[in-house]
């Protein structure tokens, strides 16, 4: 049955793709080769679409493949398959964390990981910046935006909506 198969295959992607985002891409290529639910070109397009719609690439791809294969319900089932391993594993980890949070070894490990996560955040930002800042105009927009975020402190959603308008007005 197609719904079961969609759920099962995307469940496997969710379970084995550790690290998020583009880590799912090779798994999705395998799926396209095995079942032809979507073509390699559609997958490449979807990577571009995911930069122009909200939401993680994995969710977008599961929705798209499921929808194309088995309609709206297919999209829902494939996406549910993708996130089910997360929900199960995270609940287990959260239970363990609650139990061992006060352990001094766990605290030492977490305090060592925090600076590494800061590096991951900065690196993610640099990769987006490399795509975003391409000339003088975009560099100026970046500087103005950073200053207003820092000093004006409105909600991030306000800045995201504002920046979409700025992009259209300046034809970035």
């Amino acid at each position: 049955m197609i719904y079961f198969l969609l759920f099962y295959e995307f469940f496997k992607v969710g379970l084995f793709a550790i690290g998020g985002g583009l880590v799912t891409v090779p798994f999705l290529f395998d799926l396209s080769a095995e079942y032809g639910w979507f073509t390699a070109k559609e997958l490449a397009d979807m990577i571009a679409v995911s930069e122009s719609t909200p939401g993680p690439l994995g969710v977008n791809m599961a929705t798209f493949a499921g929808f194309k294969t088995a309609g709206i319900l297919g999209g829902i089932v494939a996406t549910a398959g993708l996130v089910t391993p997360s929900v199960i594993v995270i609940i287990a980890v959260a239970k363990l964390m609650a139990k061992y949070q006060c352990n001094s070894r766990v605290q030492a490990v977490m305090s060592g990981i925090r600076p590494a996560v800061m590096a991951l955040i900065l690196f993610a930002g640099l990769q987006i910046a490399r795509l975003a800042i391409v000339d003088m105009l975009t560099a100026v927009v970046f500087a103005v935006m950073l200053a207003s975020i820092h000093f004006w402190k409105k909600s991030p959603i306000f800045y995201i909506m504002l920046s979409a308008v700025v992009g259209i007005v300046l034809k970035l």
Partner: peptide
């Protein structure tokens, strides 16, 4: 293009 700059900032 605008949103990407914003996200980087």
């Amino acid at each position: 293009a605008g949103i990407r700059i914003c996200v980087a900032a």
